[in-house]
Each structure stands twice: as C-alpha cells, then as structure tokens.
Design a binder for these strands. Structure first.
Lengths: 162, 162
DNA sequence: TATTGTTATACTCTATAACTATA
DNA sequence: TATAGTTATAGAGTATAACAATA
C-alpha cells in the first residue's frame, strides 16, 4: 500500500514521538489503558445524558450491596480518607441517589443506603457500564478478557503488598 | 488449617464488603491495578529519597528522546492541554531538570531539553523504575508480562477510538 | 487569522489537622 | 481515650477562556 496522503495539509506531519523505553513498561501501558477507558466511560454516560465517574459507580454498587454500612467502612473499601468521602457523598445525596440514615446502634455513625431513585438510577447506570465494557473489550476475545482481568488482579496483589 | 485468631481484638472482624459485579469489570480491575502500581511507584522513589510521579517520568523520557520539541508537541503526546503543561514544566525547571530554550526558527515556541543534571537524574530515575517494574511484575511470568502489556494496548486502541 | 505559551480561574481528588459528638 | 463524621485548608491534575507575541 502507498501511504495515504496526510490530511493535515501544510502542517508538519506530526511524526509520532520517540517514546524510548515507555512502551515496554507495564506502568505506562496501565496508565494509557486506564486513561482511554476513563474517557470512554465518560463519553458513554454523556451520550446517554448522564454524568457519573467510575468511582461514583463503584461507590453506588458498594452501598447497594452493603446497605447500612458506615462512611468509615466505605472509605476503607474505597481506599480513601474519610474526609475525602464527605463531599462525594454530599454530591450523590444532593442528586437524590443516597441517604445518610441515623444508625440505631451507634450514634456516631451514619447508615448509608440508596434511595428508591438511587436504585433505579443504578440499574440504568449498570446497563451503560455493560455497554461501555463491551466497547473497551471489543478487541479482545472472551478468553483474553478473562485473562486480562486475572493478570490485573495479580499485579494489584504484587503492588499492593508494600 | 484452622483460621488464625483475628488480630483486631474486640473490633468487628471487618468482613470484606460484597463488591457485586465490580470484580468482573475490566474498568474496575484496571483502576485497582493502576492505583496499587502508582502507590508502589511513589514508595520506590520515596525510599530512594526522590520524588517523582509516573507522569513526570514519562515527560522526562519524551524530552530526552525528542530534544528540542515544543510545549504543544509535548502536550499532544501526553494528551493534556497546553495550559496544564505550564506548571508541570515550571516545577521541573525549578528543580533544574530541564530548560526552555528559545527556538531559532519559530519565535512562538520553546525548544525543550534536559539539563546535564536532568540527564543524570533521569538515569537514576530509570534504574528506580526498573526495580519498581520488577516488583509489580513479581507475580507474573515473562510471558504473562508480555501478554498483559499487549492486551492493555488492545484495550487502549479499542477505547481510544471514540 | 491562526498558533504558542501564559495567566486567571474553577472544579475534582486527594490528604492532614483540628473540631464535635458519641462510645 | 478512641472513633465517626465534618470542616478548613492545601496541593496536584485537569480544563476553559482570554491575552500577548509571533507566524
């Protein structure tokens, strides 16, 4: 094949840079994949008229599956500080997706739970996430997808044991 | 084996939460692996008395391998806005690692280059990155590592083509 | 007119430290 | 004393909009 004519007339061809050792680094590949996946996640939700981050989706799933859990327990599960969690919960609560109930057994803690609207929203979000996952995995066979998730978990285990 | 006695006496055993569908999601595994890898990167550098982010390392490699490139070209390669790059370059320049030279051919652009101290620092950083890569890949065979990087590139390609 | 770099501004994620209420 | 949640604050990463210098 002849190389196709450069569509950017006049401009320097924007030859790709020399990336040196970077393409052989796992950390680099991980960052690039993550960044592209994040962008696709955002685009998927934007196209559906919704706005949600992967972190918010994960939080909602945890609250749904573990209703009544405290902010500390949730912060631990998300590996973030309890003070970091506060504005995130404020936002989701302001959107009517979750509530801080009073705990009947410990006056210090809040029992987190989704609202009915939050349950409905999460069902829709889960459908969008499935479409998103299908798209980002479209270059992979089912076997490759399983293997990739497994390998990522091994990396998490190796790097996480500091 | 009998389950070992819980070291957290008195406290609720902190039973791991139900994560629902999350562990089967590629995006979730990607975020977790990335987060753990980032933490190991930071710890590796901190232990050596250095402070550098993966992004800064990538930037320095690009400048070294493509000396004279402009801030726009670098921003494009990093997929960030040109205004985002300014404070990052300011910081690295203040550390004496790189310089903005005047371009001889275009008065609008800066020709970026590492300083001699920057070259020496990058050599040390590269050694630290290699040790870090070895650690995060310690649960993987050489074949698995190659496959993982390849699969991540496929994901990047699928998600990047929005 | 268009491009490059900079500044001003804003928003989010992250943390630490200090405060209040409760245990 | 210790824990849970909140607030105040700060730093880094990201963006958009507007500006000056240059092409």
């Amino acid at each position: 094949m002849a190389s196709p004519p450069d569509p950017q007339n006049g401009k320097p061809p924007a030859r790709p840079l020399d990336r040196g050792i970077l393409p052989q680094l796992l950390g680099y590949g991980l960052r690039r994949a993550q960044s592209a996946v994040f962008a696709d996640f955002a685009a998927t939700f934007a196209k559906a008229g919704e706005a949600l981050t992967p972190g918010e989706f994960g939080l909602l799933v945890l609250v749904e599956r573990n209703a009544g859990l405290s902010q500390m327990a949730l912060a631990r599960a998300l590996s973030i500080d309890r003070s970091t969690l506060v504005p995130i919960l404020n936002r989701l609560q302001a959107r009517g997706l979750l509530l801080r109930h009073a705990s009947p057994t410990d006056g210090r803690t809040h029992a987190l739970a989704l609202t009915p609207a939050g349950e409905r929203a999460l069902a829709k979000f889960a459908r969008l996430v499935k479409a998103h996952e299908k798209r980002i995995g479209s270059n992979l066979s089912a076997t490759e997808m399983r293997m990739l998730i497994e390998l990522l978990e091994k990396v998490h285990a190796a790097a996480g044991s500091l």
